[in-house]
Amino acid sequence: MNSNPLPQMLLVYKVTRDSFRIAERAIQTKDPKAMQRLLQRTVVENQNITDAKSMIQKSIKESDTLFVLNMWATFERFLRDDLQMRGRLLLGNQPPALGHSIYKHFEKEVEFWKPVEILDFLKDSLFQSQTALIGQAKQILAYRDWVAHGKNPKNPPSTDMKPLAAYNTLNKIVETLLCYPPSSALK
């Protein structure tokens, strides 16, 4: 059975954010010896406080965008794996050779389905009463596409996606899917 990969990603995100907080505190340390020890062998070691703060703030923003991108990629992999497990029902078709052939094709083709189409059929089935959730997932996908394709300033996303908001949305979808595990009849 599939398990939810997103909580581990949230933990990594929180540790990263804590690391940025520690770096910000280190550059503001008043004791010069302590500051030198804390910052040795770092990029900000020889920067003035203003430049170091600016570098850290830019790094936080870039890290946030990359976490959203990675969170989407992990979510999408979960969806494809989940669909492939659900498709195992095809193995029960008669004659068995036909069922296996159909499943082999299905399993391969799931890898090429467009994410927006997967979200659409989830919206039309399991999430009929939560269409806004799927809409939010589509916004995350649009943001992911923007980041993954170079952040074109001429075509920015409609929303500035935050990692925690992306996590909350995608996690609700994963948790809902996990409430309805694939049939265990054909394992």
Results as ranks from 00 to 15, higher is better:
F20A: 14
F20E: 15
R21A: 14
I22M: 12
A23Y: 05
E24F: 01
E24N: 01
E24S: 02
R25V: 02
T29P: 00
P32V: 01
A34M: 05
A34E: 09
Q36R: 10
R37N: 05
L39C: 05
L39I: 06
T42K: 14
V44Q: 09
N46L: 06
Q47M: 14
N48G: 11
N48M: 14
K53M: 10
Q57T: 11
Q57M: 12
K58G: 01
K58Y: 04
S59A: 15
I60T: 04
K61S: 11
K61A: 12
S63Y: 00
T65K: 13
F67A: 06
N70K: 14
M71S: 02
A73M: 09
R77K: 11
R80V: 11
R86E: 11
G87P: 03
L89A: 13
L90I: 01
L91W: 12
L91F: 09
N93D: 06
P95K: 10
A97N: 09
L98K: 13
G99V: 12
K104C: 04
H105K: 14
H105I: 13
F106P: 00
E109I: 08
F112M: 08
P115Q: 09
L119H: 06
L126Y: 04
F127G: 00
Q128N: 11
S129L: 15
S129Q: 15
Q130S: 13
